[in-house]
Design a protein around this nucleic acid. Structure first.
Lengths: 227, 227
DNA sequence: GTTCAGGTAAGGGATTCCCCGATGACCGCG
DNA sequence: CGCGGTCATCGGGGAATCCCTTACCTGAAC
């Protein structure tokens, strides 16, 4: 609904998602809107950074899991570069796990892939208007927790993990060894070992084997509701 | 390329994926093809089963993770109902983990979301022609294993394991460490290590981490069904 | 301006991984 | 009836990891 400007002044959307098929689909979906057009796409943070400075999009749609990096890192980088482009995180992960991290990283919104297609379009429009988008349930929950004013949350479960820890947890679940994770994140093996220890601690796990098991389960069910 | 039939006889594609946004995208992507049209969509196995019998699709595109069930279960159900509709599995999971399970469940192909959009179209066309589609690397690997050439012994997967190996595999998947398994079975740690090595060998796994990952997957997917 | 959480890393002993080889006990097959 | 094949069981030894502890830096919070 609404788009009286027609093709005079379409808002440019840039896509970052490591699944080409999903990207192609999103393009078709977005180009269907009169007020929106896709000005580029990428599967990795590197590509994305190189291109967005050329094409100057009005909004960037970014998935959390990328080929070479993390979507939230990309958002931080964009922020650090002083580019004032609103970003909308699109992910299959449950929002309760990532929405907060995303907003803290500087994103303007968070949409789950489980959401309806119209929700995505609404979120894009809201973000283009300079507002913040999260689902109703999430926003009320965040307000309740006074997410940005009263750092008081005795959370438990995977939600208690820091961003880095969550990243490592995810990579563990995908079958990567400690060494492989260290290489992928360009960190010391020792650092990854520390994260593993922290995760085990927070999740009350006793052995590395249990950690692995949990991580695999989590990755498996990342699109389902598992709190 | 190719589509001389034009709109006279489009092949009907049915979509099953629990992400509406991805579904919308796939619709746009598929409808772009002259020879294909989307005849329906669902986010759960229940919906899908109810509808495909009405609309009679020529091919079903199904994601592995669904709202209420597993895509592979859906495929088995479709098979059991005697519906002779080819199914193509579309998933974000690595094919080495699922492609074989998918084909065994009765699917005609497996495409990762990491693949290019054109790959998906090619896969759909191949499956519509009654052929099997898997990626080149996967197919050569499978042919080498003679996975489905002579329905006999050169099996791969958990069934090729000996009793003891299967027992150990199961315990690994349940989160037990090597030492714990040794204690539970009253065997030497060294013996368990040997079993792990044998299992890795038979399942063509490269690291202990992969073994663990596979074991966890197996425990939650197949142990309940065959046992 | 001190406290606190997150990110990064190292030291060192305990454990496991991983590539070897080894000993019986079966079991079918020419 | 030996002969090869598979199972089930264990060990050596070096590399890799796990696990616990400590430590430094930073930035946000109080």
């Amino acid at each position: 609904m609404a788009a009286e400007k027609e093709d005079l002044k379409k808002s440019k959307v840039y896509l970052v998602d490591d699944h080409p098929i999903v990207r192609q689909g999103l393009i078709k979906l977005i180009e269907q809107e009169d007020a929106l057009e896709v000005c580029g796409e990428a599967g990795s943070a590197g590509e994305a950074l190189a291109e967005i400075q050329k094409v100057g999009p009005d909004v960037i749609l970014v998935d959390i899991s990328l080929e070479d990096s993390n979507g939230l890192e990309l958002i931080k980088t964009i922020d650090d570069l002083g580019l004032r482009i609103p970003t909308l995180v699109l992910s299959m992960h449950d929002e309760s796990l990532y929405a907060e991290h995303a907003l803290k990283a500087g994103a303007s919104g968070y949409v789950m892939k489980q959401a309806a297609a119209t929700t995505l379009i609404q979120a894009i429009e809201k973000v283009l208007d300079g507002e913040i988008y999260v689902s109703k349930t999430m926003s009320s929950q965040m307000l309740k927790l006074a997410f940005r004013g009263n750092g008081e949350r005795p959370r438990s479960g995977a939600e208690a993990l820091s961003l880095r820890e969550l990243e490592v947890f995810d990579l563990i679940g995908r079958g990567n060894s400690t060494r492989e994770i260290a290489e992928q994140l360009s960190l010391s093996v020792k650092t990854i070992e520390t994260y593993r220890a922290h995760i085990k601690d927070k999740l009350h796990l006793r052995s590395g084997t249990e950690l692995m098991q949990r991580a695999v389960h989590w990755v498996e069910n990342e699109s389902h509701r598992v709190s």
